[in-house]
Design a protein around this nucleic acid. Structure first.
Lengths: 178, 178
DNA sequence: CCGGGTTGGTTTAGGCTTCAAAGATTGTGT
DNA sequence: ACACAATCTTTGAAGCCTAAACCAACCCGG
């Protein structure tokens, strides 16, 4: 969108005005808004194409992607908890998502021998077939959307985003581990 | 004493997982996953703090932010359509959001003279007061989360994200811009 | 064994989000 | 005037998402 260089907020009452102007933090804000815009733009397009071409959704795709990657490494699949941590979503969210995918025959559950609490999730054969098609398209879409950047720009962006990730995680970790 | 398998139990986001196992993957995909991880991380924290400190949500905050910025510039507020375009969400979404904010006395509607189709939305006095508090906190949070980057890094990241935005928009524009 | 703490998962209530279809109003061509 | 298209908003169905409460199974120390 059009960059709003004017954040004119002088409309505020006098009593709250003091809280309002800690100096100099505007460029962090602009950086964040631009980051958010980029992500929203790409994500919205991917959602739309997943729906249009495969009649599925991004969360479904993400869950299947997690399972697909896990299946090569370890046998038996992933537990719902592992999935929820990988996807950075809540526990209950994965419950419903898995239920829908299971109803469509794309994933299957089975208990882990020796621990009756956990539900191991795996792609079915149909699920693997479906995901292979979706995954190839998805990769091409991303390459298309970000292909306007040169390789050196992508490399630099990747590195800087890694630094940003570190910064956020560092700011989060103190209260994240009580 | 039961040596915990910490390697297997470590929390790994999707981007890290991709970098680990599979063979040749496109760097565009890794870039995208890292972008998504950064955004999700920040956004989740902001959501949690908005709830914790102000008992509100990010969509509510975003809508009020749009109104707040518009109020300085033009009189009368914004139409629901303008808001939905600014926020990059659907039309019907804004309807419900506005209804909830109106029920809480934070925004108010009024018809535009001469066109009975449109609903102009404005912050109430209470809404302006609330938003001023939230906005100040929000800005500080962002500065805190992204403060681990040096000014030069932020500048470079901002510029590269601008390039990325251009790339995505260029790939989208054929069917997206009527 | 048997309690208490921990971990894995589900449920519930409520809000967010989209798409598609429908209402309502305005503008336009004939 | 009248039909018709365009614009703005609302509604309804379905899915996504979270926090908090809850249940079930495991673990461990007496």
């Amino acid at each position: 969108m059009n960059a709003p260089d004017d954040l004119g907020a002088m409309v505020v009452d006098a009593e709250t005005a003091l809280a309002q102007s800690p100096p100099g933090h505007k460029d962090e804000l602009r950086l964040w808004l631009r980051l958010l815009t980029c992500t929203t733009l790409v994500e919205g397009e991917i959602r739309a194409r997943l729906r249009r071409d495969f009649d599925t959704t991004l969360p479904r795709f993400d869950l299947m992607a997690a399972l697909d990657r896990a299946q090569g490494g370890m046998n038996g699949g992933m537990t719902l908890g592992e999935i929820s941590r990988r996807m950075m979503v809540s526990n209950g969210n994965v419950t419903g998502l898995a239920a829908r995918l299971e109803a469509e025959g794309l994933v299957e559950r089975r208990a882990r021998p020796g621990d009756r609490r956990v539900q191991l999730l795996r792609l079915t054969a149909k699920g693997r077939r479906e995901f292979a098609r979706q995954s190839a398209a998805h990769e091409a879409w991303i390459a298309e959307l970000l292909g306007g950047l040169e390789a050196k720009e992508r490399e630099a962006l990747f590195r800087l985003l890694g630094r940003a990730k570190l910064s956020v995680r560092a700011a989060l970790s103190p209260e994240d581990t009580p």
